[in-house]
Structure formats: C-alpha cells, structure tokens
Amino acid sequence: MYDSDKPVLEVKGLKTHLTTKNGVSKAVDGIDFSLHKGETLGIVGESGCGKSMTSLSILRLIPSPPGKIVDGSILFKGKNIVEMSEDQLRKIRGNEISMIFQEPMTSLNPVIPVGEQIAEALRLHQKLGKKDAWQNSIEMLKLVGIPSPEKRAKQEPFQLSGGMRQRVMIAMALACRPEVLIADEPTTALDVTIQAQILELIKKLQAKIGMGVIMITHDLGVVAETCDKVAVMYAGNIVEHAPTEQLFSDPKHPYTKGLLNSLPRIYEDQDELATIEGNVPSPYHLPEGCRFASRCAHREAICDRKLPELIEQSDGVKVRCWMYTDQWALHEEKEEVL
C-alpha cells in the first residue's frame, strides 16, 4: 500500500530524553520514519526500547519534567508538531491524530457514560450540536461492533467487558475520522480470541477511513498480521526498518535475527529456543559504540568504537549495523593481511 504522495507524518531525528536524579535517560535517541495515508507502520521492540516514548512524543504527551523533546522534528502534513503551541496541539489531538492505549480503563473517565465521552470529542472538534453528537456517537459504537449501542452508550466503563472497552476507545479515537491513528499495544491486555476481533476491526476501519496507523507492539505476530512496514527499536534507536515481508523472510540486523529466532513457533517443534545472551544496556549509561554490541555474536573492534548509522541497503531495507557498511569489508581485509 505504498503511496507515492507525500507522507502524512514524518519524524526526523527525534530525540526524547528524560532527566532524573540518576542522570539523563536517552529513551528516544534519534528516530526517523514516515507514514503515508492508508499505511500501517509497526514499531516493535522489547520493554524499555523507547517505542512507547516515541508514540507519546508524536502527540507531545511526554510528562515534562522529566521528559523533553531535545532534538528533531515531527512533521504532520508539513507542520512541525514540536514547535506548536498548546492551542494548536489541542486541535490536532483526538481530531487529526488519535491514540489508543493498552489499558482502556485508565484512559476512559470512569464516571461518565461512554456515549457521552465519544460525543464530547465530536462537540469539541467537529462543532456538532448536542443531539447530533449523541447520534454520531451511537453510530460509532455500532461501527465498532458493540451490540445494542443505544443501551451501551448510556453505560459507564465499568459495566463493559475489557474487549468492549477497547472497542469504545477505538470508537472514540476514530469519531473525528483522524488521518493518523497511533495504537500503543492496543491488544496486549486482551485475550487472544478478543485480540483477533480487535485487530480485524482496526484493519477494517482503516480501509474505510483511509488513515495511517502506527502500531506499537512487542508482539511480532501482531506485526506480521497487520503492518505494511516495520521499524525494530533497540535501546532508543531504530536498528532495522523494512517492509514486513522482507523483515520476516530476510532479517538483517543481528538483533532482529535474534528476536525472530527466540520466538516459540506454533506450527513447528523446536528442541531448544535460540536466545540472545545478556541484557539491554541501561538508557542512563549507553555504550559509545553499537548498543547491541555486548550481546552480538559478530562483534568486532569497530562496533565498540562508534555507533553505526541507519543505512539504506540496495533492497531498500535500512539497517544500523557495521556489517552492512563498506568499513566492515575494509576491516575484514585488514584482518586477513595481519
């Protein structure tokens, strides 16, 4: 679904750092990606890799202090979100760019009927009257597949099941027909049969509304089933950026390979799982060189000296690893001479 038009969202060199009493945590440390209309970008990585901080940065929802966007730009239809005033931001949040979170109970107001909460967004952003907004909010509930929406609209969040609450969140996020939807672990708290329902719903609505979706997840299965392209994050950096099929059929970065190999498979038997030894470096004390070097089987002297760049390969895949640079070849030749 690659569109030749200009991307609706473009993130360039984004750095979000957190200053705490322990020092500076480089949670997001130089991220670039773009998103077109109708396209789904997956951002994957393990806990602490900076994927959620990235998504919060896009809507400037980082609690400050301690967080701060220290560098980079986030262009939404050409306008830089980083430089916007609170007023300008408010017009975009929940209207042109919407977000769904992992735990709907913490993002819904517990004492207001869900229909009312959806209607509020419509009144604020679309300037609808009270009656129209209510009607539209029932329409939205119907669209996300909630049975007897007229009745449910009057209920409060605690009266709904987890799956239904997530549907309400989606209805709210999509009520104003956003151009970009950020889904941060939208199905992690749900059971698999409900997860399947929600993922299918997001796909169906995306086709209908034509929005771009950023899917943030730790689950490579979810990525394989929903995304067009994927960015793999590790310790605040993107280490690989590829079309989904290529990422799974021909992973390049040693971390991506390790991650895919460590998955237990549902359709085959494995005696022992491959593991990635060691742990993720602390975001307070990042190494100077490649951040994966201490866990990498291909580690060479150059890896510890300098952080590699995210470089586009001949097949369009971008990878941040010295093995895929000219320096690596030189480096190997030198070894042979010695």
Binding site: E225, T244, L260
Partner: peptide, 8 residues
Amino acid sequence: SIPVPNPK
C-alpha cells in the same frame, strides 16, 4: 486466533 510471525 494467535497472531503468527509469518506474513506469508
């Protein structure tokens, strides 16, 4: 229902 890490 399980998402499988194999897009093909």
